[in-house]
């Protein structure tokens, strides 16, 4: 049966996996069984009692109380088993242990923002230590989003004006995909994040210096990574097509006309300001919708973006 489960479900990586997968496979087998059971009955009936002459007479069977009781009670018992099984898993996933590490997650069109206990903030990349209970407190800024990690078998809506909770203990170091599963508009399907399940040492380093990959990467590459991972890509294209914001192609050293009517030279200072105080100058013809990245990007990452834009001629 393992191959079947591996076909249907992604490999599990949290403490909630066992409960959910067991029940999932139980109902799957039930579905497969009843499909073939009903199919076989129908097939048999059609073969055996296919009409051969118009004069055929059929028995007049109106009902059979005993049989009907059987096929009412068996489904009833089966669904009650499923109910309790599903309830048990849900309860276990309900209350976070007291020693959970708490991370605040904010969804907004179309990025996920994470705030750690020490105040560190990251965008779209969440680092958590392995084997440590983690509690996510979810909220949203604009519309409802939903935080879904298939490998953890977990999902919870992030609702503006409310806090919802989710907790897990990751069991395997690795990188896991997060999806937004509550429809939220144009960038809904790009509102992806990743959870890095770190060994304790990796996690310490991350808190101090940002993640390893980032530290070793050449600036230009890092710039592209920031563009991809931190939400820039949802609005800024690299090939000149117009998005929610101006494309980055060929803008270096150009003059941009701001909504204030003045011209601005696109240089390092200008880019830096646009990242940290995006409303200071808004390019004419665009809405002032860009969120600030103050506190979200390390200094080296801002430099990297500048280098990256320079290259986009």
């Amino acid at each position: 049966m393992n191959w079947f489960r591996n076909f249907l479900l992604p490999p599990g990586a949290s403490t909630h996996v066992g409960e959910m997968d067991g029940l999932f496979m139980f109902i799957t087998l039930l579905t497969v069984f009843f499909f073939f059971f009903n199919g076989a009955l129908i097939f048999y009936a059609v073969r055996r009692w296919r009409r051969r002459s118009e004069k055929e007479v059929t028995p007049h069977i109106t009902h059979d109380t005993r049989l009907e009781l059987v096929w009412s009670l068996i489904p009833l018992i089966v669904v009650m088993v499923i109910f309790f099984w599903g309830f048990r898993g849900y309860v276990k996933a309900w209350v976070a242990p007291n020693d959970s590490m708490e991370i605040i997650v904010t969804g907004k069109k179309w990025v996920w923002e994470f705030e750690y206990p020490d105040g560190t903030r990251t965008l779209n990349d969440l680092h958590v230590p392995v084997n440590q209970p983690v509690k996510l407190v979810l909220t949203a800024e604009d519309v409802i989003h939903s935080f879904y990690i298939p490998e953890f078998r977990l999902k919870r809506d992030a609702i503006p004006g409310r806090y919802t909770e989710l907790w897990f203990t990751a069991t395997r170091p690795g990188i896991y995909q997060v999806f937004c599963t509550e429809y939220c508009g144009r960038g809904h399907s790009d509102m992806l994040a990743r959870i890095f399940v770190d060994t304790p040492e990796q996690y310490e380093t991350f808190l101090r210096e940002g993640d390893e990959q980032v530290r070793k990467m050449p600036l230009k590459e890092l710039g592209r990574l920031v563009w991809e991972n931190k939400g820039c890509a949802t609005c800024h294209s690299l090939d000149g097509t117009r998005g929610q914001g101006p494309s980055w192609k060929g803008i270096w050293n150009q003059r941009h006309k701001g909504a204030d009517g003045k011209e601005h030279l696109v240089d390092a200072d200008y880019i830096r300001q646009s990242i940290l105080m995006p409303q200071a100058v808004v390019v004419q013809g665009f809405e002032p919708i860009m969120p600030t990245y103050q506190g979200l990007l390390r200094e080296r990452e801002i430099l990297a973006v500048i280098e990256f834009i320079k290259e986009l001629q």
Binding site: E19, L23, I27, T28, I82, F83, F87, Y90, R153
Partner: peptide, 11 residues
Amino acid sequence: LFLAALSTDVH
């Protein structure tokens, strides 16, 4: 039934 059961519906 998968969707009516709490733990599987979460996924």
